[in-house]
Design a protein around this nucleic acid. Sequence first.
DNA 1: TGCAAAATTTCAATGCATGAAAATCATATA
DNA 2: TATATGATTTTCATGCATTGAAATTTTGCA
Lengths: 211, 211
Amino acid sequence: MQYSSVMVDNGGVGLRERKKQRTRRALVEAALRLFDEKGFDETTLAEIAAEADVSTRTFFSYFASKEDVVFYDSARKMELAAAAMADRAPGESPGDVLLRIVEESLTWLTTYEELTFEDAELRIRLVLKEPTLRARALVMLLESQTTLARALREAYPELDPVEAAAAVGAMFGAVKLAIVADLGHDLSAEQMSSTARRAAEITLAGLRSLG
Amino acid sequence: MQYSSVMVDNGGVGLRERKKQRTRRALVEAALRLFDEKGFDETTLAEIAAEADVSTRTFFSYFASKEDVVFYDSARKMELAAAAMADRAPGESPGDVLLRIVEESLTWLTTYEELTFEDAELRIRLVLKEPTLRARALVMLLESQTTLARALREAYPELDPVEAAAAVGAMFGAVKLAIVADLGHDLSAEQMSSTARRAAEITLAGLRSLG
DNA sequence: TGCAAAATTTCAATGCATGAAAATCATATA
DNA sequence: TATATGATTTTCATGCATTGAAATTTTGCA
């Protein structure tokens, strides 16, 4: 490939790319707002697309489904979690690593990379409220646990597959149910964190410690 | 209500009811067979309905959705699990009760109430293979855990809500991930049970016991 | 400016799901 | 046995998510 003398090196981010990011963001914001106002099922893709000034068909070149628009950054978060597993401190036990990752994950939950803090909180509310979104979240949570179990085995080769899977599943399962079961109560991010920490501690100590 | 002299007391099970059960069963069997042969997404409701000799619309007076036909008896299984919690043996600890329920649940997994054993195994394969069905299963699993956490609190009033939720979530989360993560391997019912038992044991002992 | 690639729009089709009205069927009873 | 009644099924019509393909527009760049 040759470059003309007038070519501007814009770091790979030309008008085309900027426009795509703007559209993507417009779709996410429109969707979150409409889902919040009218409910997930009552909002149509046509409405979302209209709000973002694109055709309905175009929506699907950005997201694979109506649910996906809410979880647009989850893949990146999963990678972060798996990476966090890799740089464990020396002497850190599997349980401690998992505890650390749970806490970091909760932080990310309220951290949108491109959106406002309000939208980040709105998303949590939506996922807890809308059955369709809850279902999608459960699928992704399971996927990320599978990934984490693999990462845990790599970090601790002495663990066998069942041990690694059981550890990850127990830790995230405990935290998930502790947070969800309390539902109905409006949960602030702090309350969520404190609940999660208690659930994690119980899992570390083992269920026999409850008797 | 009055009875004529020729009335037959059929125990509340007249032709109408028998016909409904037959149709229900025909729909479930047709659906399982077609899902297995062609895949879930490739099977249309029209095909299932045709196979069962009813109109497409009628399908929805038996099941709420295409996925639901696979889980038609799950509600009953959930009730069984919650009931199993209630009749705990004296001196049985929360952890032991959960272990017992996990084992019973695995038994029920391969027990269809109205269908053949082959269909019961077919269902497990389908749920593990088809993303749509996996998603549905996760939702129901979460629901049943919420129910179980409540039941656990009632059986052991000394537990607080977070402890009960964490215990149930940890136990089922560990077993679930241990079984699913090993996927790709064809799992016999026995292997599944043994994996589940190990995962449960780890959860009882606590993740600290892994370091 | 003008070409080529990328992105968007338009158009058509399929399949799930649901509501409402019309047609059938099972049941109890006169 | 004939029939009124209520339950069930079918028919018909509609909305919406999703997907493929062709036509059109936009952007990057020579």
